[in-house]
């Protein structure tokens, strides 16, 4: 029952919970694990840029960087170095993240390193559903690469999408189904036995405040079986396209820990 890529995701020295982050991400992770082995064998660790970019694979289902980057499940990460935590307009941060920022937390090498090592300890009650990256070298490589997107660098490569229907073999048309939030609110009763609505994500990820597209794609990915998880495949399996759209419309408006 386990997704074929669970183990390889762990090979990334990430402590992100061992759940396949979608087929495409799995494949990337699998390839990456292999690539890493090759690197290690040759002890060719110099190319931090490549490695940092690959490691961003852990973040990119939630965050965008590059030209045209927008807020998705998480805020965009352009110019993150030097900015106060929780300070971008247009993103609904948790209270914890906003208060960390007004309390003086500014993102730099040291604070980002500490945050990414253990997000839940560094900013308790943040609603970033990510368990961190264990390896110090990995964090350093990722941050070195991410720094390239700060400081007003020109000619940034275009931002990559967080999730596309294509990568899960879904028909793009699913994104144009309109969702009725009132119906979504009723359907959500089935979800809140497990998913907290205050943004907490211990053991089960937070699903509040997501852009509709990401939400719809995630549920359809379970429904089609391209994303593997026994419970979620069963839950999504009986949801119609309209019901998924209704749930997405409802949960988008739920403010976790506002």
């Amino acid at each position: 029952m386990m997704g074929p890529c669970t183990a390889s995701a762990n090979g990334l020295t990430s402590t992100s919970r061992p759940r396949p982050a979608g087929l495409a991400a799995c494949l990337t992770a699998g390839l990456l694990a292999l690539t890493l082995l090759a690197f290690q064998a040759a002890s060719a660790w110099s190319d931090d840029g490549e490695r940092g970019k690959e490691l961003f694979g852990l973040c990119k289902r939630c965050h965008q960087v590059g030209s045209g980057a927008t807020h998705r499940i998480g805020p965009h990460l352009n110019d993150v170095f030097g900015r106060a935590a929780g300070s971008l307009a247009g993103f609904r941060y948790s209270r914890a993240m906003r208060e960390a920022g007004t309390g003086g937390l500014v993102w730099d090498d040291a604070t980002l390193d500490a945050f990414l090592a253990d997000p839940h300890t560094f900013v308790p009650r943040s609603r970033m559903s990510f368990d961190g990256i264990k390896g110090m070298d990995d964090r350093a490589a990722l941050l070195a690469w991410l720094q390239g997107y700060s400081g007003g660098a020109a000619d940034l490569p275009p931002a990559e999408p967080t999730a596309t229907p294509e990568e899960y073999g879904l028909d793009v048309k699913i994104l144009s189904v309109a969702g009725d939030p009132e119906y979504g609110a009723y359907l959500a009763g089935e979800c809140t036995t497990c998913h907290r609505t205050d943004g907490a994500d211990k053991g089960i990820p937070s699903i509040v405040g997501w852009p509709v597209d990401d939400f719809v794609i995630a549920l359809h990915a379970y429904k089609s079986g391209t994303r593997v998880h026994a419970v979620m495949q069963m839950v999504a399996g009986r949801l119609s396209d309209e019901e998924i759209a209704a749930l997405a419309a409802h949960f988008q408006e739920v403010e976790g820990n506002p």
């Binding site: 061992p18 497990c194 998913h195 907290r196 211990k202 053991g203 089960i204």
Partner: peptide, 21 residues
């Protein structure tokens, strides 16, 4: 695998917090 069993256990912790909320 042990990882999957651990993830399942962690889910149950999340569920406990979810249902009691």
């Amino acid at each position: 695998s042990a990882e999957l069993r651990m993830a399942t256990y962690e889910e149950s912790l999340g569920w406990y917090d979810g249902i009691t909320a």
